[in-house]
Nucleic acid binder design. Sequence first.
DNA 1: CCAAACCATGGACAGTGGTCTATTGTTTTT
DNA 2: AAAAACAATAGACCACTGTCCATGGTTTGG
Lengths: 114, 114
Amino acid sequence: MRIGELAQRSGFSRDTIRFYEQNGLITSTVGDSETNSYRKYKDDCLVWLEFFAGAREAGMSVADLRSIVEANAESCDREAARAVVLGKIEELNERADQIGNAIRFLENTLSRLG
Amino acid sequence: MRIGELAQRSGFSRDTIRFYEQNGLITSTVGDSETNSYRKYKDDCLVWLEFFAGAREAGMSVADLRSIVEANAESCDREAARAVVLGKIEELNERADQIGNAIRFLENTLSRLG
DNA sequence: CCAAACCATGGACAGTGGTCTATTGTTTTT
DNA sequence: AAAAACAATAGACCACTGTCCATGGTTTGG
């Protein structure tokens, strides 16, 4: 598919998709047209973008996402890939703990406001 | 206490504390010395800063934190304050869901890397 | 007393994560 | 055919979240 469709289906803007591509989060190929240089994106990209949406919301940086994508791509080196992914899971668990703390703090605030 | 002590005890740098103060997250008073203009921070600030550390890690922005601080300060308008805090709790719960999704995604990745 | 450490203020700078604009060319719709 | 929509590329621009630096003054340890 072309970037417009990908944008529409993923909910990211064209600009953001290009930004992500520049940063190695997704890849595209130049189409086979003789007359234009429109890029082609596989369905794969859409799957990744859907993950990115949640992962960004969950607090992962673009650099984090790149390392995950790379871990997937270079799964020839499985141990390294596993290590990266395990590390990210660990980070997310810590973040979840922090969210729990913050929620408790706010619930306290709330009961003080009673 | 003075900013250096606050920095040391909170783990934030002096610069960050000043940045937070500029952004309304904490307040200080000018000390009573005749010869200097050193600012004084109450223990209260330390409590807030400890919360901020976790809350930032949990993905709350400085603007978010300011609105919570303000909700606390202007608790004369309790309903408004409650609404702000409830809204933040809601956001954090959504963020926690996103983290859960991301973790599941990564665990899938992991089992693919098996 | 003097150096080291501290403080205030203000502004410059940096990294992240985009967004917007300009330019130029292509495709699709009417 | 003309207008509208789409695309590529490059670079400017933005808000956010700090960090660093310069300057000038103050306090403290030895």
